[in-house]
Design a protein around this nucleic acid. Sequence first.
RNA 1: GGUGGGGUAGCCAAGCGGUUAGGCAUCGGUUUGCAAAACCGACAUACGUGGGUUCAAAUCCCAUCCUCACCUCCA
Length: 523
Amino acid sequence: MPLRFHNTRTQKLELFTPKTEGEVRLYLCGLTTYDHAHAGHARTNTTFDVLVRHLRNRGLKVSYVRNVTDVDDKILKRATELGEEPLALSARMAELCDGELAAIGCAKPDHEPRVSTHIPEIVALIETLIEKGSAYVAETANGKDVYFHVRSFADYGKLSKRKIDDLQAGARVETGEIKKDPLDFALWKGSSEAWGWDSPWGKGRPGWHIECSAMAHKILGAHFDIHGGGMDLIFPHHENEIAQSEAAWGPEFANVWMHGGFLDVDGEKMSKSLGNFVTIAQVLDRNDAEGFRYFLLGAHYRGPLNFDVDFTRDETGEVRKGADGHAERTWFPGVDEGERRTDYLYTAIVSAEAFAEGASPAIGAKVSKAFPALAALAKSGAEDVAVALDDDLNTPKALAVVGEIAKGMNELITKAQKQFKKEPEGIAEAKALAAALSIALRGAVAPLGLLQASPEDYFARTKVRRLALRKLEAATIDGKIEARLAARAAKDFAQSDLIRDELAALSVELQDGPTGTTWRILV
RNA sequence: GGUGGGGUAGCCAAGCGGUUAGGCAUCGGUUUGCAAAACCGACAUACGUGGGUUCAAAUCCCAUCCUCACCUCCA
């Protein structure tokens, strides 16, 4: 199955062919680090994390770059408010965000270049652009700025399908007349403030877009395979990157442009300016990281994904306000569902491995005849997921296959016992098939970055978190279970059921089995 | 005004010319002291609206409505 990806540039699904056979060079626009990473960042980064895992799974060598924009006016503003050195703040936040992305299973990129350590490369690129007549220096009250002259680049607008004249009509009126054209954007901003670097144009800071061109060029070369980011970066950020890079080194800067859709809250884009953002840390306070990831992969990366937020309410149904006067938003129904599905997958693995009793994976003749669909799944399950991902990262389809494998394992366990009641060989084959399905599931899930823990660790960590969320103690629950066991032994089922209902009201679910009673806390 | 995303059964969400992906919820069944988990079945011949092309359209074409976003910083 050939790899096909949607290219924003051509607005088409295209066969993907790396520039160098067997190797993929990928650049993802990372974060501007002045605050926690939010759930929208989580979505984009998870998308590209799956892309990288899948490409590697397909045997391709991937060079994955995700930059850190640690020089920016927003950083300066926040640092000033906090009374912190700007670079100290951005370094601190970069580390924090890195940890938050790692926590949701986004593997560390091969390179995480920072603007602050690439000023010479940026200055060199700006000098090249000035030499080529694509950029010009302008005097301002704060020193000298350098602007990219948009009209010098014939292809300007080729990514975002915008025409300079259309943009001009809607462009805001700039204060002062330092730019030749209202759409020209800053490559270098002269500054008399403390924060800045020396340059041929005096002290100042790089403008927004230029760092990505300079750093991508340094690490991946002038032309590479895939450039990604959120849809909101198409214009102006990526359009400007193309202009700078291709003006300096010629086309194509990146062969394929991939953009992820937004994470919405109540149908509106999650963004800092709307104040409707939820940080990754807030999600992880309530939900398991893999459940969150399952939720994020539940919709195709290019479409919108609604992140439902339920408010915490008091007895009268009023939304509870936190100390800061803002509504408490602590309940994420979509993520809860993702976590329940994650429970289901881990539970299926535990059941299958217990049933298999260490049998070597195999697909026997008897079991193939009795359960042809399951035998087929064991053979092709992992590849079915990979094929879904080949097709422009169809993660919902991939999750459907994953679910079918897990369901298949449960089906096998419930049906094989009956089917092979008097056939020990059949049972033995069923055990081997359960082992094979379990391996298929592991393989299927690998490129998605799910089920990365052992079931024991997963259930242990979710139990701890769910107990804390419900303000419950394991010992209290165990005590009630013992009381219930005593009641059951005495055949006092009314009392036994009373205790069970009491626990159920606390979201504690009991499971009576042949070896005793176990419990778990529901999401 | 320009550009782009989305409108699929109660809900979420794939599919994008021809055997109703998948999940959640709900309701029945198997199992159970009763439950839960798990499995089986029903819900489901659904695709914003109006036209058209085709043997055949959720899928293509035309028109139109709703919605979100970008055109200033945003993943």
